[in-house]
Amino acid sequence: MSKENTNIKDSKPDVIFNTVNYTILSILLLVILYPLYFIIISSFSDPNAVSLGNVWFYPVGFNLDGYIRIFEDENIWRGYFNTVCYTAAGTTINVAITMMIAYSLARKTFKLRGAIMIYLLITMYFNGGMIPTYLTVKSTGLENTWWVMVVVGAVNIFNVIIARTFIENNIPEELYEAANIDGCSHFNFFSRIVLPLSKASMAVLILYYGVEHWNDYMKALIYIRDNELYPLQIILRAILIENQMQDSVITDVESQLERSRIAELIKYGVVVVASAPMLILYPFLQKYFAKGVMVGSIKG
């Protein structure tokens, strides 16, 4: 079109390449976005229209029935509340412990540095397996308590390496030496200098650990027996995969067919409600991802 205006002309094979490339990636965008979009429009649609296959591009027979039922459901609320608590408390502990050990491993003068690093790396390649870990947790008395959801999985070695490398690269050794001459201890330096300067790496840690807690269902599956303690993912499993909504919650509807259709509607809604927080959060932290992954892969 306006070829005279561009300095570098694309050769003919390049034009073809670009067209093909843009087409492939656009199809990919569609393949990823459409299922998510479909879930959203279906959750606002008339359940009959969804199950008959009339919903494709926009909500049909707009209604909020599914969401109303979700918000009235005690189990979902409790699960949501539990998950928010587990995620908040768990992530706080994770990030604190990770930053602390990352700082001490970043200090090149620390004599035990190498030994501790090996101690950490061994756990990356070996673990006791499901049953011995279960027996250990059981013997600590944490099984079926609030704490098991917060404490188990508290340290991720990969994340420690990310944080350590960040501190090494961004907070020069000389800064500590200078502070030390002025009488600053490691504790002070860590809390007054390192933490405020590591906001970027802490943001990544919060996201990584946070997503892990938010989406975790295996820990609860193995260690939690008490309904009151169930996180959102266990409730979701009951609704989405074990179809438990159908008979217990939708008691006001007579016909079996109608009930199963409303149950489907609730499923669409519940997917939206459960996934929205993380999907809204991650784009804000996206610029840090590449750095985190790259750093971990080099040093790990």
């Binding site: 602390m100 050990i101 620390f110 673990n127 006791g128 011995p132 870990t133 504790f187």
Partner: peptide, 23 residues
């Protein structure tokens, strides 16, 4: 002080990773 900072993670890994290895 550095040991104290590293200690929570070390203790944690000992209980939840090394003890199960023994188990």
């Amino acid at each position: 002080q550095l040991i104290i900072l590293a200690l929570p993670a070390i203790v944690y890994l000992f209980i939840f990773n090394y003890v199960p290895m023994y188990g």
